[in-house]
């Protein structure tokens, strides 16, 4: 899959799981980075089953970015759960700004340059585990409104047939 496909699928899946828009957008970016960097995909499956953990993770990143912007110094965080820590790392490295991370055991030390863009590259192709892919697609489908005659006829533009 392309990076954009996985990012977009992640946003929709998080939304379908009940995550608010800002956190869902950030989750999508995290997911693509996580998959690109060979992060454990099982950790993503677990967190999608508990969307409040996605909101908590997003908030944790927000506090780190906030602290970095106030002090302009490296910020440290401790996360004992390896899966959650891997997603925290992916979330931070997915930020559009430049970031440098040092990871030692459960500790993550991050330096952010908020006005400098990230220079991290993106691979041509990303590969999702079938079980995560299925879970993402099921959740994403929850964001789509069922089709109906009224919706089909009046909800969008052109007629159903054009013979100009």
């Amino acid at each position: 899959m392309s990076w954009t496909e996985i990012q977009t699928l992640g946003v929709k899946a998080a939304s379908g799981a009940g995550v608010p828009p800002a956190q869902a957008l950030a989750f999508g970016a995290m997911l693509a980075r996580h998959v690109a960097d060979d992060g454990p995909q099982g950790a993503v499956e677990a967190v999608l089953s508990e969307p409040e953990r996605i909101v908590a993770l997003a908030h944790r990143v927000e506090t780190i970015v906030e602290a970095a912007s106030v002090n302009n110094k490296p910020v440290s965080a401790t996360e004992k759960d390896a899966g959650t820590r891997s997603m925290l790392v992916s979330w931070l490295t997915a930020l559009p700004c430049k970031s440098e991370l040092e990871i030692a055991g459960s500790k993550v030390r991050v330096s952010l340059s908020l006005s400098e863009p990230s220079a991290r590259g993106r691979p041509e192709r990303l590969y999702l585990n079938p079980s995560l892919s299925e879970q993402l697609n099921i959740l994403a489908a929850k964001t789509y409104v069922p089709d109906s005659d009224a919706s089909r006829a009046g909800g969008a533009g052109a007629g159903l047939m054009e013979l100009d």
Binding site: K142, Y144, V145, P146, A150, S151, R152, A156
Partner: peptide, 26 residues
């Protein structure tokens, strides 16, 4: 604003007359 399950077509609805507003695009 919403995304229809029909080929994910973007659509616009009336929240007081049509179902689906709880799935509105932000």
């Amino acid at each position: 604003w919403y995304v229809s399950e029909a080929k994910l077509e973007p659509r616009l609805g009336d929240r007081f007359a049509e179902p689906g507003a709880e799935l509105e695009t932000p």
